[in-house]
Computed example of a mutant assay.
Amino acid sequence: MKTNIVAKTFDELTSKEVYEILKARAEIFVVEQNIVYQDMDDIDYDALHVFIKEGDKVIAYFRAFKLEDDFIKIGRVLTTTHGRGDGARLLKEGLEQVKTKFNTNKIKLDAQTHAIKFYEKFGFKVVSEEFLEEGIMHVKMERLFSNLA
């Protein structure tokens, strides 16, 4: 089935896309990773939503939003398909979307520690000690867009 990458502000999303995004986030974070948290945190309203659709289903997703220090933060990074390369495609093409849509050269994220090597492939560097968030070990990572290949 054909997949395509999409980047939209909240107001550009269709109701079906919002539903599919929230369903994918619940599937990964609540069901698969057993994280009990309030997912709808109002950040979505001001975020750029970057995702890969397979038919109508969202199979890979992240959101990006501007922080007060002029960094762009990406979060809620997920794939519902594992081992197909969808995560790498999402990050590669999604970072280009973020670079185009935001007027900054700095990006950060909180990475689950098991994913550090994955993010390092895209130029991210660990900039913190490990910390516990929602019962899962994380680190803060940053990169400059000027380092994008």
Rank of each mutant, 00 (worst) to 15 (best):
residue 56 D to S: 14
residue 3 T to F: 11
residue 8 K to F: 08
residue 59 I to W: 05
residue 48 L to P: 12
residue 101 K to F: 12
residue 48 L to E: 11
residue 97 Q to E: 15
residue 96 E to I: 12
residue 93 E to W: 07
residue 23 K to A: 11
residue 94 G to F: 07
residue 86 D to S: 15
residue 55 G to M: 06
residue 70 D to T: 09
residue 73 K to L: 03
residue 23 K to I: 05
residue 84 R to V: 11
residue 11 D to N: 13
residue 57 K to A: 15
residue 31 V to E: 11
residue 55 G to Y: 06
residue 109 L to A: 01
residue 84 R to W: 09
residue 2 K to N: 14
residue 81 T to P: 00
residue 103 N to A: 14
residue 86 D to F: 15
residue 81 T to F: 06
residue 40 M to T: 11
residue 82 H to D: 05
residue 47 A to R: 00
residue 32 E to R: 00
residue 63 R to Y: 02
residue 55 G to C: 09
residue 27 E to Y: 08
residue 15 S to M: 13
residue 113 T to N: 11
residue 21 I to C: 07
residue 66 K to T: 10
residue 63 R to S: 02
residue 53 K to S: 13
residue 116 I to M: 10
residue 115 A to N: 11
residue 24 A to T: 07
residue 110 D to I: 01
residue 89 R to S: 12
residue 75 G to L: 03
residue 18 V to I: 14
residue 98 V to D: 02
residue 48 L to M: 14
residue 11 D to C: 07
residue 20 E to S: 01
residue 8 K to R: 10
residue 74 I to L: 10
residue 57 K to W: 08
residue 60 A to I: 09
residue 74 I to N: 00
residue 84 R to A: 15
residue 92 K to T: 13
residue 116 I to D: 10
residue 27 E to V: 04
residue 9 T to L: 12
residue 28 I to M: 08
residue 44 D to G: 08
residue 39 D to A: 07
residue 48 L to G: 12
residue 33 Q to F: 08
residue 47 A to M: 04
residue 52 I to R: 01
residue 109 L to Y: 01
residue 37 Y to S: 05
residue 80 T to D: 09
residue 58 V to E: 06
residue 37 Y to A: 07
